[in-house]
Nucleic acid binder design. Structure first.
Lengths: 123, 123
DNA sequence: TCGATGGGTGACATCAGTGTGAAGGTCAAC
DNA sequence: GTTGACCTTCACACTGATGTCACCCATCGA
């Protein structure tokens, strides 16, 4: 598919798709006329990238961990350096912290909204 | 306490503490000599702010939702506008999405690391 | 009293993620 | 064959969160 379709299907500005490619987060073939040509799986990939960006990971890290998250695992096994493992462990721990933080604040907001609603009903 | 102590206790650069104050995320009194003087509770506040920033929320939003998260709730009740409620609901939902995204990817990394370890032990 | 340390402001730099626009090529449809 | 939609690259600019540096004042201990 070409970039326009990918853009609409992922609700992502064309500009950003090119940016993600520049950052090597997604890849594309080229049609004879130079247009980018994406495979189907890139749709999910873009959504995943956006999710990770949204959650505060920088492109640098995303680029590192992406290959471990969706490709056929075994293919990548032999290439995993201790360094990479360390990075993954660090990121995994940071993610756990973030989940905890988000969960706590999510709960606080929920509680607050509940209280507000009770208050309104009571008044 | 003065800014240096707050900085070490929160492991946050002094520069950022001043920035957070500029963005009205934290407040300080001033000593006669002009030095900032923080109350004890600011320590937790800073940590909470950093957690939220880390998780991708902009200062603008944090500023809005903070009062609802830790102050004595009832005091703020009367001032909650429908607008504010809408913002809170929106953020709460976005947080839920982020939690989901993080959880999924956290699990993927965990699985991957497990596989790597099995592979190493097997080889 | 001097020097180290810590505090204050202000300005400029950086980096990532975006926005936006110019200038031009491709192609389908009318 | 020209228009209009879609694509290309290049480049400049902004924002938000930080780093860094310059310059000056305050406090304290030797």
């Amino acid at each position: 598919m070409r970039i326009g379709e990918l853009s609409t299907r992922t609700r992502t500005p064309v500009r950003l798709l090119r940016y993600y490619e520049e950052q090597e987060l997604i890849a594309s073939d080229r049609l004879p006329n130079g247009y980018r040509d994406y495979e189907e799986y890139v749709v999910d990939r873009v959504l995943q990238v956006r999710g990770l960006l949204d959650v505060g990971l920088p492109t640098r890290i995303i680029k590192q961990i992406l290959p471990c998250l969706n490709s056929p695992r075994t293919i990548h096994m032999p290439y995993v350096t201790p360094d990479m493992v360390a990075t993954l462990e660090r990121e995994r721990d940071r993610m756990a912290e973030k989940i905890e933080c988000l969960t706590k604040n999510h709960q606080a907001i929920t509680d607050y909204l509940d209280a507000v609603r009770r208050n309104i009903r009571a008044s």
